[in-house]
Amino acid sequence: MYLGFVVDKGLLGNDPHFSEGCSYCHQGNDQEKDKEKAHKGLIKRPSDNLALCGRCHEGIANNYKMALHFTTVGQKEGLKARLSREELKIYDEKVFAKSCNSCHASCGDCHVKSPVISGVNLGLIQRHKFVRTDEGKTCALCHGGRVYPEFVGEYGGNADVHYQKGMMCLNCHRKEELHGDGRKLSSRKDGTMKPTCFTCHNLTKSSEKSKVAHMKHENKVSCHACHSAGEYRNCYNCHLGEGSQAKPGFILGRSPRDGKLTTLRVIPTVRDTFKKAGIVMENFDALPNYWDTAPHNIRKRTDRTRSCDSCHREGKYFLKKENLIPEGSRVNEKLIYELKRAVP
């Protein structure tokens, strides 16, 4: 792991980022030979101060101030409706500032050094080279619980077909989406630059069977509902300071956002998640425990694309009243999708 702190000497004379010397960004004392003295006042994450990068990259830094990876307000906005006004104040002070917002990403987390996850620190991405992208050492760390392992096939089943074709995160999630456009967003779903399948895929070369299937399900069923290859990670029972338990599952139901049939993922917030902070979530039932999700395990052919029976006769994977999570939100029932059954 020490290699993560070794700098490539060859970069120093060639990359303008180093032209002002180390202490320009990191402070500390670059004349000292003793480690402790040299590190006194050291700033480990200089790019937390966006103005520093903004001296040259002004436009990006200004936009990024509002980007969800930096503000992490998505975590707060996704919960807000469950809390009373008083509880929101407590949440802001005791939970959001100390917990949720502590794992935001600043410029360096994607361009210089892998983010530290649970004390594991891979260190510099390419010996302090300022890289454009290196998803396996950046995105993969923070998104290593669900999205990335699904994408590369480490969570059982096959890897996402896009990964197998050599694509990585930034091939679909454009830098403009990640840097933001300066608008304040409350959820990644609000972004106008999020990826869609239709950017690359159309039906011009598809078979007649495929065209008919797509036409029949258009605007009623999400792409993932049919093309997600299999089980993905669902997290249950999260409690402040203790974390949650995860298990694989595949759930089809009504999207709480647009009502389409889609893949749903269990979110780990339960009634007593924030009990330790004195928050009982007075309006817990305002939001469901399942949210629409885009599992990153896409395949052209799945058991749902092979046969209509999988859904229309067997009703496989569908959320049903009897398998709703116990003690869950009362609105969970609204996500049960009443399917048109095939006539036997």
């Binding site: 020490y2 070794v6 700098v7 120093l12 010397g21 180390c22 670059d30 480690k35 040299a38």
Partner: peptide, 13 residues
């Protein structure tokens, strides 16, 4: 830069 304490240690594996 070569002379700085930072570079001396951080470029030496």
């Amino acid at each position: 830069l070569q002379d700085s304490g930072c570079v001396r240690c951080h470029t030496d594996e």
